[in-house]
Simulated scan of single mutants.
Amino acid sequence: MEKFFVVCGAASAFIGVAAGAFGAHGLKQRLDADMMAVFEVGVRYQMYHAFALIATAWVISRWPGSLANRAGYLFIVGTVLFSGSLYLLSLSGIRWLGAITPLGGLAWLAAWACLAWAVLKG
């Protein structure tokens, strides 16, 4: 699982950097300031949680168990729901996508709790 979460974290960071560059160079002229800010929040939180996935791999190597694995999957789900919904919202303008964003935040909160509990338990 360690390799899987490092690869997912690296891929997520790659996508985050690419999205950030796309936003800075390709979207600045196309999006208004509010939607640009929404896009940038998606990028920022994706990058934070890409590193969280890599940290999860380290936790698994140190304190293996289902809680740490669950944390990794929850970080992935959170990224797709949170950052993905913000990317889609900012690019499409479809406002109801903002209702999905908090679900990603809840997944991340659960992931952080699982990660902490995995270390405390180990």
Score class of each variant (00 low, 15 high):
Glu2Phe: 02
Lys3His: 04
Phe4Asn: 07
Phe5Leu: 11
Phe5Trp: 06
Gly9Asp: 05
Ala11Phe: 02
Ala11Asn: 06
Ala11Cys: 10
Ala13Val: 14
Ala13Ser: 15
Ala13Met: 14
Ile15Glu: 15
Ile15Arg: 03
Ile15Phe: 13
Gly16Gln: 04
Val17Asp: 15
Val17Pro: 15
Ala18Tyr: 03
Gly20Thr: 13
Ala21Val: 12
Ala21Leu: 10
Gln29Val: 07
Gln29Phe: 00
Arg30Asp: 07
Leu31Thr: 14
Asp34Ser: 11
Met35Phe: 05
Met35Tyr: 07
Met36Gln: 10
Val38Gln: 00
Glu40Asn: 13
Val41Asp: 07
Gly42Thr: 06
Gly42Glu: 13
Arg44Phe: 08
Tyr45Gly: 13
Gln46Val: 05
Gln46Met: 04
Gln46Ile: 05
Met47Thr: 07
Met47Lys: 10
Tyr48Phe: 11
Tyr48Arg: 09
His49Arg: 06
Ala50His: 03
Ala50Pro: 05
Ala52Ile: 02
Ala52Thr: 09
Leu53Ile: 08
Leu53Asn: 13
Leu53Arg: 10
Ile54Asp: 15
Ile54Val: 15
Thr56Asp: 10
Thr56Arg: 03
Val59His: 03
Val59Trp: 00
Val59Lys: 08
Ser61Pro: 03
Ser61Arg: 10
Ser61Tyr: 02
Arg62Ala: 12
Trp63Gly: 00
Ser66Gln: 10
Leu67Pro: 06
Leu67His: 02
Leu67Thr: 07
Leu67Gln: 08
Ala68Trp: 00
Asn69Arg: 15
Asn69Pro: 00
Asn69Glu: 14
Arg70Leu: 11
Ala71Asn: 14
Ala71Leu: 12
Tyr73Thr: 02
Tyr73Trp: 11
Phe75His: 07
Val77Gly: 08
Gly78Tyr: 07
Gly78Ser: 12
Thr79Phe: 00
Thr79Leu: 06
Val80Asp: 13
Leu81Val: 09
Phe82Asn: 02
Gly84Glu: 10
Gly84Val: 05
Ser85Glu: 00
Leu86Arg: 03
Tyr87Glu: 11
Tyr87Ala: 09
Tyr87Thr: 10
Ser90Arg: 06
Leu91Ile: 07
Leu91Gln: 12
Ser92Phe: 00
Ser92Tyr: 00
Gly93Met: 04
Gly93Ala: 03
Gly93His: 03
Ile94Gln: 09
Arg95Gly: 10
Gly98Leu: 01
Gly98Pro: 05
Ile100Glu: 03
Pro102Asp: 13
Leu103His: 06
Gly105Thr: 12
Leu106His: 04
Leu106Glu: 11
Ala107Ser: 15
Ala107Lys: 04
Leu109Lys: 01
Ala110Leu: 08
Ala111Phe: 01
Ala111Tyr: 01
Ala111His: 05
Leu115Gln: 12
Leu115Trp: 01
Leu115Thr: 02
Ala118Ser: 14
Val119Ala: 10
Lys121Cys: 03
Lys121Val: 01
